[in-house]
Write a protein that binds this DNA or RNA. Structure first.
Length: 475
RNA sequence: CGAGGAGUAGCGCAGUUUGGUAGCGCGCUUGGUUCGGGACCAAGAGGUCGUGGGUUCAAAUCCCGUCUCCUCGACCA
């Protein structure tokens, strides 16, 4: 066992610190830096497969709502960025700029997109002419770059993968409605695909997107009580439509500006998964996004009939649509057990001579780390129902943890002790000064505002509260 | 940019106080025995000790410079 000390110590610190070893050891994903490029990721296949599963599930939802995928350029003329005043102010400090190309200095610098509102706004300005063109709803999967000062794998990288949806509507009501609908879509996605509970709501002025009229967010609570903004939707009003001339001729013959909104989730969701469900043994992946949903580990695989039995079981399970891997490598069973547990595979099937003789399979659940025997003849149904209960268990556990760690606060000192361990629910007068003071006092920010307004007084100044806010320390 | 810490084999580290020509664990390669919770034996491969200069018969070790990374503060999905 002494040999494992190093490994055990590597995995032991996940409760207190970001599980660096998850990305290094399990996903083989690293922050790289070559020359001045810092804090961007190389994602190897296992980690990327999680992202592909997220993409597939998300795309299905978008398409059901009539949103189509498209692609817009990586490089954006500097002049586009400066058209919306707040937008450029918000992003200027963190854009990378291309000044030379083709061996010569460019007439106009190009920025590497930090987000695509401007270039998409530019195109929408050309595409939208008539009320018949609306609503226009496109999404793109792409990479964006923000030159962050400090970076962490998956949570904050200078380059990250995301989807960004951008829509134009004829009326503000429709655009605002869509902004909320997308927030609900994200919430449903987090709950059913990622098995992750989230808090959703409107952001404060201080926290809203640069150039937006209103920003909504979903926040997930990590093991350590800190909050991770896992998705945002923005209602832009006519800010971008006016900056980019997104105008249409309405039914009444009048030339009118459209109303735009946008929404996005990123590879940060993978970080959220790791930190929400992971335990001391490694990753715990929700079945919908797990690259491998069932791994079959043959026991005494050189004995006659064992591998054959594993392969035939594997085929049966694959036919039900599951992602199944049979690990017939030369490693010992114990090694395989640990390996696949680290990788977060929801179910492990052990199949050896003893099981085959008894007509059973031994199944290990990654979420509870419990083993049970199932009848080989009923494997398909039994495995499917087990995967279902893994989802339920993961969500229930995370939801309970989140609920227990949301505490109300009436004073700053209550707020301070509350954010040590999770979210704090508190009244807020609506003044920026109080928001700033909370941050200074407790290193906590307003994550989202709650719809139910039941905290009567501002936690900071004690005046009448306008909003009830979830405060937390954030990643 | 303000404050701390660290650069030695693919990864994690020891060695530096007191200079003597580089070591441990994991991983990797080859062969054999194993296989129901990270197996064992044997043989191997792999490092101009971040970098430039200085002191010395001799520098990973002492001195000066320099670069980089990590952690914490200001910004952020």
């Amino acid at each position: 066992m002494a040999k494992n000390d190093q490994f055990v110590s590597q995995i032991a610190d996940i409760e207190t610190d970001f599980p660096q070893w998850y990305t290094d050891v399990v996903l083989k994903t690293k922050l790289v830096d070559y020359g001045p490029v810092k804090g961007t990721m190389v994602i190897r296949p296992y980690g990327y497969a999680i992202w592909e599963n997220i993409q597939r599930e998300m795309d299905a939802r978008f398409k059901a709502r009539g949103v189509e995928n498209a692609y817009f350029p990586l490089l954006i003329p500097m002049s586009f960025m400066t058209k919306e005043a707040e937008h450029v102010e918000g992003f200027a400090p963190e854009v990378a700029v291309v000044t030379h190309a083709g061996g010569a200095k460019l007439e106009e610098p190009l920025v590497v997109r930090p987000t695509s509102e401007t270039i998409i706004g530019h195109m929408y300005g050309k595409w939208v002419e008539s009320w018949r063109d609306l609503p226009l709803r496109l999404n793109q999967w792409c990479n964006v770059m923000r030159w962050e000062k400090t970076t962490r794998p998956f949570l904050r990288t200078s380059e990250f993968l995301w989807q960004e949806g951008h829509s134009v509507y004829a009326s503000g009501e429709e655009a605002e409605e869509e902004t909320l609908a997308m927030l609900r879509l994200y919430e449903e996605f987090a709950k059913t695909v990622l098995c992750m509970p989230v808090l959703t709501g409107r952001k404060t002025e201080k926290e809203k997107f640069a150039g937006a009229a209103a920003t909504y967010g979903m926040e997930a609570m990590m093991h350590d009580g800190k909050s991770l903004q896992s998705g945002t939707t923005h209602y832009m009003g006519q800010n971008f439509a006016k900056a980019f001339g997104v105008q249409y001729t309405d039914k009444d013959g009048e030339l009118k500006y459209g109303y735009t909104m946008s929404y996005g989730v990123s590879t940060r969701l993978i970080g959220a998964l790791i930190m929400t469900h992971g335990d001391a043994r490694g990753l715990v992946l929700p079945p919908p996004v797990a690259p491998v949903q069932v791994v079959i580990v043959p026991i005494a695989q050189k004995k006659e009939g064992v591998l054959e039995a594993c392969k035939s079981l594997g085929e049966r399970l694959r036919k039900t649509g599951l992602r199944v891997t049979i690990d017939d490598s030369d490693n010992s069973p114990g090694w395989k057990f640990n390996e696949w547990e680290m990788k977060g595979v929801p179910l492990r099937v052990e199949l050896g001579p003893r099981d085959i003789e008894n007509g059973v399979l031994t199944v290990f659940r990654r979420d509870t780390c419990e083993k049970q025997e199932l009848l080989l003849s009923e494997a398909e149904n039994a495995v499917a129902s087990l995967l279902g209960s893994v989802c339920k268990e993961l969500y229930a556990r995370a939801e309970k943890r989140m609920r227990e760690r949301i505490v109300p606060a009436n004073t700053l000192s209550e707020l301070l002790s509350g954010v040590e361990g999770g979210f704090v629910r508190a009244g807020w007068c609506g003044e920026r000064a109080c928001e700033d003071k909370v941050k200074e006092f407790a290193q906590a920010t307003a994550r989202v505002m709650d719809e139910t307004h039941d905290m009567p007084f501002c936690v900071c100044c004690g005046k009448k509260a306008k909003h009830t806010v979830f405060f937390a320390r954030a990643y």
